[in-house]
């Protein structure tokens, strides 16, 4: 059980990068970008094929980022220059990428077992520094030594990488270009009147968003040890789930807070799924249904709670009024 949770946090840290990308397009640009389902796999496929062909895993991962950047830019161009509706532009790109991903990999599934990847690299370095022993002895001292995994490398390195990306994104969104990008999602007409090209902003935003998604895909492929043409199905919904859960639990008053919330949301989502997997009658195939249910609940619950609070407020106010007007009315209620 703790091992499953630990794995969920590890994977959640990597999926959080994808969630940050979805946050950028969905929340900042107000553009529901379905390209994500395709660009996640594009990242995985690009990294996998380069690793299999003997390139350094870091170079392979960077190439994946570039591929995602291009995919996002094309979606942006379809929308801005081609005048295609945002949802449709994303869907078209997603479908097109499915074929492209198969072409990149050459076959539907590309295993990375026994290949040197970023993940194995992290583990090797971690091993050589010998920090596992330190963590292990700390955990042993508090009596948890035998239930937790033997390596912390991936978790800690991924935590650092994801937080670095978060900070870079926070800073970018405060630069002159970043401000114009945020305003594009907030009030497009206003951005025009202050001499920024909203079309370019959208293309740039979608490109960065999908670059992050592809990075996440590349790392997940290396983490799981394979790249698969179907691994991106429903990825946009997972991203949305992370964004919505995170915002609901951790708040989103400022950008800094919201990006942190999104990372938290991605991890919590993974934990929910890990727990759901342990429910006896649920199968792996049910996970998409559970994901959809989580998003639906996360979307509906806040409205429901608001309504309930409103009702309570009104009832309280009514009671106060009646109490003021005379005791007997209040008593009869």
């Amino acid at each position: 059980m703790p091992e499953a949770i630990f794995g969920a946090i590890e994977a959640g840290m990597i999926y959080a990068i994808m969630a940050l990308g979805v946050y950028l397009s969905f929340r900042i640009l107000d553009f529901p970008d379905l390209t994500v389902d395709g660009s996640f796999v594009t990242g995985a496929a690009t990294a996998a094929i380069l690793i299999v062909n003997g390139y350094h895993p870091l170079i392979a991962t960077l190439a994946a980022v570039a591929a995602g950047f291009i995919a996002g830019a094309i979606t942006g161009l379809l929308h801005t220059k081609g005048g295609i509706n945002p949802l449709l532009a994303g869907i078209l790109m997603m479908i097109a990428l499915y074929s492209i991903n198969l072409r990149i990999m050459g076959k539907p599934n590309l295993p990375l077992l026994r290949e040197e990847t970023v993940i194995t690299g992290i583990n090797n370095i971690w091993e050589s520094i010998g920090l596992n022993g330190l963590f292990g002895s700390i955990l042993n001292a508090i009596g948890l030594g035998d239930v937790l995994p033997s390596t912390w490398g991936v978790l800690i390195v991924m935590l650092i990488v994801t937080l670095c990306i978060k900070f870079l994104l926070d800073i970018f969104l405060r630069t002159e270009i970043g401000l114009a990008l945020r305003a594009t999602g907030d009030n497009e007409g206003m951005v025009h009147s202050f001499a920024a090209n909203t079309k370019n902003m959208k293309v740039l935003g979608l490109a960065i968003s999908n670059a992050l998604v592809a990075l996440s895909g590349a790392l997940i492929a290396q983490y799981n040890g394979f790249s698969d043409a179907g691994m991106g199905i429903g990825m946009i919904v997972i991203g949305l789930a992370s964004v919505i859960i995170g915002e609901a639990i951790f708040g989103h008053k400022t950008i800094v807070r919201a990006t942190l919330a999104v990372i938290g949301g991605a991890i919590i989502y993974r934990i929910i799924i890990a727990l759901a997997m342990r429910v006896p009658f649920l199968e792996t195939g049910d996970m998409k249904l559970i994901t959809a249910l989580i998003v639906i609940i996360a979307l509906i619950l806040p409205r429901f709670i608001n309504k309930l609070q409103e009702k309570q407020r009104k009832r309280k106010r009514l009671a106060e009024l009646q109490a003021g007007n005379g005791g007997e009315n209040f008593a009869s209620n």
């Binding site: 405060r174 630069t175 202050f194 920024a196």
Partner: peptide
């Protein structure tokens, strides 16, 4: 409502306006 971005702060809105005559860069706004 048309001339400002509602979900951004007063300062950020002014920073966007400040850039009207300039080319936007990666400097902090």
């Amino acid at each position: 409502m048309a001339g400002t971005a509602p979900n951004m702060t007063i300062e950020e809105n002014l920073a966007i306006a400040y850039n009207r005559t300039k080319t936007r860069t990666l400097r902090l706004g």
